[in-house]
Simulated assay, not measured.
Amino acid sequence: MNEKELIENIEQFFRWYRQVYDSELILDHPVARVSIAEPSGPAVQKGRQGHAQTQNISRRAVQYRQTSPELQAFYEEIRDCQQCELHKTRKNFVFGYGNAQAEVMFVGEAPGREEDEQGLPFVGAAGKLLDKMFASIGLSRDNVYIANVLKCRPPDNRDPRPEEIARCEPYLIKQIQMIKPKLIVALGRFAAQSLLRLEQPLGVMREGDHQYQNIPVIVTYHPAALLRNPALKQKAWQDLKKIKRFLDARTGESDSPHPLISPVPE
């Protein structure tokens, strides 16, 4: 990693921290910006011709390292994926992030604008709400894993297309196999339909008992849907309590309310 990439990586971390935790980090010493001279010459001009063909890859931000060597190796293997047309418009390949030994894996639909900018899942407004939902049942990003069905942002946040899901879903399947979660939470209709191979409305899937490769699946609303329609938060709270009961049963805790439990935040 050169000096410019290091500075970009540090700046990206601070942006992510501000988005997720809604606060700033203060350093004891300032970080100086490094000025790197732009090379020139025939060899550079020749290289720029090839660069024009791969500009979407070259503008990829430095990805935070995964929390296991296996996940990191898999990320390195697929981060330049060009299996569908979405690679032409993405800024970053959003692999996923979290605890590689997580008992709970949350699966969303696709990256949005902020996720595409930063290369991390759920860092925009929906991500802030998701963090509050985690806290309401005693979870945090330190003990879950978060990923999406699609790893690249659809233009204008349109719905994923069947061919895009078909190309990208094997990556999610392998992530699940590596993490081996005890519970999967499908956030939204597309994630649930993709994992469960169902064409039912989200409201119907929420009420059912589901499994994915012998792993229990709880279906709930995507945080973005809760932002658009706050009236759904009460139903989402019922789903969060299902997650909490599942985890309590695994640890032998009583079903009494967790001290952090409160209705889904406004």
Rank of each mutant, 00 (worst) to 15 (best):
V123N: 09
V123M: 06
A125T: 14
A125W: 07
G127Y: 01
K128A: 15
L129D: 02
L129C: 08
L130W: 07
D131P: 00
M133E: 13
F134A: 03
F134W: 12
A135N: 15
S136A: 15
I137F: 15
L139I: 04
R141C: 06
R141M: 06
D142Q: 10
N143T: 10
N143V: 13
Y145C: 06
Y145G: 02
Y145R: 07
A147S: 12
A147N: 07
N148E: 09
L150M: 05
K151W: 04
C152P: 01
C152I: 09
R153W: 04
P155W: 11
P155I: 14
P155S: 14
P155Y: 05
D156A: 11
R158C: 04
D159M: 00
D159Q: 03
P160F: 00
P160Y: 00
P162L: 05
E163T: 13
E164Q: 13
I165P: 00
I165M: 01
A166Y: 09
C168H: 12
C168Y: 01
Y171H: 15
L172S: 03
Q175H: 11
Q175N: 07
I176M: 12
Q177H: 11
Q177L: 08
Q177A: 14
Q177N: 10
M178P: 03
M178R: 14
I179Y: 04
K182W: 02
I184K: 02
V185I: 12
V185C: 15
A186K: 10
A186Y: 04
L187E: 00
G188Q: 02
G188E: 00
R189I: 03
A191E: 00
A191N: 05
A192G: 10
L195K: 04
L196C: 08
L196A: 04
E199C: 11
Q200H: 11
Q200K: 10
L202Q: 09
L202R: 06
G203H: 12
V204G: 07
R206L: 12
R206G: 01
D209K: 08
H210A: 06
Y212W: 13
Y212N: 08
Q213C: 08
N214M: 07
I215V: 14
I215P: 04
P216I: 07
V217C: 11
V217K: 06
I218P: 01
T220S: 15
Y221M: 04
P223W: 05
A225I: 05
L227N: 07
L227G: 05
R228S: 11
R228A: 14
P230A: 05
K233E: 03
K235E: 12
K235T: 08
A236N: 05
W237H: 13
D239A: 14
D239G: 14
D239P: 03
K241N: 14
K244H: 12
R245F: 06
F246I: 01
D248Y: 10
D248Q: 15
A249D: 11
R250Q: 15
T251R: 13
